[in-house]
Amino acid sequence: MMAREIQTKSFWRAALAEFLGMTIFVFLSIGSATKWTGAGVPADIVQIALTFGLAIATLAQSIGHISGAHLNPAVTLGLLVGCQISILRAATYILSQMLGAVAASAILFGLTPKSRNGTLGVNALGDGVTSAQGLGVEIIITFQLVLCVFATTDKRRTDLSGSGPLAIGLSVAIGHLMAIGFTGCGMNPARSFGPAVVTGNFKDHWLYWVGPAIGGIAAALLYDFLLTARFSDLPDRLKVLTNGQTEEYDIEGEEDSTKMEMKPK
Rank of each mutant, 00 (worst) to 15 (best):
L147R: 02
S161Y: 11
S161E: 10
H176R: 05
V149K: 11
R157I: 13
S171C: 12
V146N: 03
I174S: 13
G162F: 05
C148S: 13
A167L: 05
S171F: 05
A179H: 01
A173R: 00
F150D: 01
L166I: 15
S171V: 05
M178T: 11
A179M: 08
L177G: 09
G164W: 00
G169F: 03
A173P: 03
G162V: 04
S171P: 00
I174A: 15
S163A: 09
R156E: 14
A173W: 01
R157A: 13
A167G: 06
L145N: 02
I174M: 14
V149R: 02
I174L: 15
A151S: 13
I174D: 01
L166F: 14
D154V: 12
S163C: 08
C148Y: 02
L177C: 07
T152R: 07
C148A: 14
S161V: 10
T153C: 05
L160Y: 12
I174C: 13
L145C: 05
G162A: 09
G162T: 08
S163H: 03
T152K: 00
A167P: 09
A167S: 15
V172I: 15
F150K: 05
G175W: 06
F150T: 08
V146C: 06
R156N: 15
L177M: 14
I174H: 00
S163Q: 07
S163W: 01
R156Y: 12
R156H: 14
V149E: 11
G175L: 10
A167W: 05
P165W: 06
T152H: 03
V146F: 07
D154K: 08
L170Y: 06
V149T: 08
V149M: 10
R157L: 11
G175Y: 07
R156T: 14
V149S: 12
K155D: 12
